[in-house]
């Protein structure tokens, strides 16, 4: 084992190799299974990066789809409209052009994250949520009005460059980044900011900077996920990145337990696969999501995927009046 790699980084390298290997054998896979698998990977990236902002740092953002849109459009323009100019630079090699486009998409999204974050991170709770929602909508409206990227009709004929390697390579890097960022003395600061901002400041933590780092890193990976998404679906339009898309990601984070690595990854997998399985009930999906949110918040706000399952359902049901009657001890 090379001395400059530690254990966690070895895991990352192994995951990248595995992604490459999976890609190598991917033509044996059914194309439908393949696209669902890639959907899972993209959603893990989205959920993990949002978890950094909403979960670990405690800054409830509702604009993640907006950053995703920025990355999707940027990378699609680079591989589509600008391909003629860029291809000679990369010698026509897609495997060079595509990651370049993804990273640039991520960087532009990160800049957008910084621009959104700088003014709004002074706000808290409800207000931050609604302002990020507003920014997400503004980003959408801007894309709707830019004819160069197709306006409200969107962009089509995006080359299908996304494959198992790029998607799961990105997934591995995202998961590693969020994990490594948190698991250090510096990184514990994110959690401290989430717990109590005033006290974090009093301990010498620049809370604004922490929130900015979370926002920018989160937006960066949302942007890359957007790029992967665009080159998987070959088509994007502004309304695909609306409030509902943000909510979808938020639900993954909440279901997994805000500020939990594994829980959020598991719930991203679960929800993506469930969505596919329940495709014929597509109309009910958002109804189920919304009911899930309400019930979770009342019964199990720490998320479903949090181990151990300390509290039996009964403990929570008692909070409701018909059950409260049952729970009441008989007085003699």
């Amino acid at each position: 084992m090379p001395s400059w790699l530690n254990r966690s980084q070895l895991v990352l390298v192994a995951a990248l190799l595995a992604a490459g290997l999976a890609q190598f054998f991917s033509n044996h896979l059914d194309s439908y299974v393949l696209s669902v698998a890639m959907g899972v990977g993209i959603n893990i990236v989205l959920a993990s990066s949002l978890n950094l902002i909403n979960g670990f740092t405690g800054q409830f953002s509702l604009g993640h789809a907006g950053f995703m849109a920025v990355g999707a459009y940027t990378s699609a323009v680079l591989t589509g409209k600008l391909a003629a100019q860029l291809n000679p630079i990369f010698g026509g090699h897609v495997y060079l052009l595509f990651p370049f486009a993804l990273v640039v998409g991520g960087l532009v999204a990160a800049v957008a994250g910084g621009l959104v974050g700088a003014p709004s991170l002074r706000l808290k709770g409800d207000y931050l949520a609604i302002v990020t929602l507003g920014f997400g909508e503004i980003i959408k409206v801007i894309f709707q009005n830019v004819e160069y990227v197709g306006g409200a009709k969107g962009l089509n004929a995006i080359p299908d460059y996304s494959n198992l390697f790029w998607v799961f390579g990105t997934t591995a890097i995202t998961v590693y980044t969020v994990w490594a960022l948190l698991n250090s003395t510096y990184g514990r600061g994110f959690l401290a900011v989430a717990d109590d901002e005033i006290s974090a400041e009093a301990m010498g933590l620049n809370t604004t900077r922490y929130k900015m780092v979370a926002f920018v890193v989160g937006a960066f990976f949302a942007g890359i996920a957007g790029g992967l998404f665009a080159h998987l679906n070959n088509y994007i339009n502004p309304s695909g990145f609306d409030f509902n898309k943000s909510i979808e990601i938020v639900v993954m984070v909440i279901l997994g337990g805000m500020g939990r690595h594994t829980g959020v990854i598991l719930s991203a997998i679960l929800l993506t696969v469930l969505t596919e399985l329940l495709r014929q009930f597509g109309d009910y999906r958002m109804v189920i999501y919304s009911l899930l949110l309400i019930v979770l918040m009342i019964l199990r706000p720490q998320g479903l995927m949090v181990w151990p399952f300390k509290n039996p359902l009964w403990f929570y049901l008692k909070a409701y009046w018909p059950f409260r009657m049952l729970a009441r001890r008989p007085t003699s």
Binding site: F60, D126, I247, V250, I254, M286, S290, L293, I294, M297
Partner: peptide, 17 residues
């Protein structure tokens, strides 16, 4: 507040959908 906020979003989505 966060829990209540998320619930409120849930109720909103429920009514819409």
């Amino acid at each position: 507040t966060l829990t209540v906020l998320i619930t409120a979003i849930g109720v909103s989505l429920l009514l819409q959908n």
